[in-house]
């Protein structure tokens, strides 16, 4: 009996990075991430990915516990291109996410003479992701989600 020929696993573009939760480092990481997927993912999807990643990673930076720690939280980031979109996983050792982040968010009320200057971040994340999951274990936050491709983009997958 002969073995069937081994089908090599499909290789897809991936991006993995371990970084300090600092806005300048986040910015450089986003630029690298964009370069990694530039040839394989359309601009619209890359734009949505970049915005979600910026919101989530800068959120870790913004809420870093200053008083109790002499170092910045560390973020682990992994993105893989799949058939239906970009599968993303983020882990960090920053403070726990408030429950409200995972509850359906609406926009802060736009009162004409007193417009909100914040409160948009989690709304954008929820709006641009699919299958957003969160859990916390061993002092780490874990987030997983998908950035879907728009129609037709998946046809380019070889």
């Amino acid at each position: 009996m002969r073995l069937k020929a081994v089908v090599p696993p499909k290789t897809q573009p991936m991006f993995h990075r371990v970084l300090d939760a600092d806005p300048v480092v986040v910015r450089a990481t986003l630029t690298d991430m964009r370069h990694r997927f530039a040839r394989d993912v359309c601009d619209d999807t890359l734009g949505r990915l970049e915005l979600v990643m910026a919101e989530l990673m800068n959120n870790v930076a913004e809420h870093a516990p200053v008083a109790t720690s002499d170092r910045l939280p560390v973020i682990h980031l992994c993105i893989v291109r799949h058939q239906a979109g970009l599968a993303c996983a983020l882990a960090d050792d920053g403070v726990s996410l408030p429950d409200a982040c995972m509850l359906p968010r609406s926009l802060p009320p736009a009162i004409a003479d007193n417009l909100p200057e914040g409160g948009f971040g989690w709304f954008l994340v929820q709006n641009l992701t699919q299958a957003l999951c969160y859990y916390r274990a061993s002092s780490r936050n874990y987030l997983a989600f998908n950035i879907p491709f728009m129609e037709r983009e998946d046809e380019n997958l070889s």
Binding site: L51, A54, E55, N58, N114, L115, E117, G118, F120, G121
Partner: peptide, 16 residues
């Protein structure tokens, strides 16, 4: 080429 929610907040603050 890129703006996030903190950038949007800055634009709103300038408008105000």
């Amino acid at each position: 080429t890129f703006m996030d929610s903190s950038g949007l907040g800055a634009m709103i603050a300038v408008r105000k």
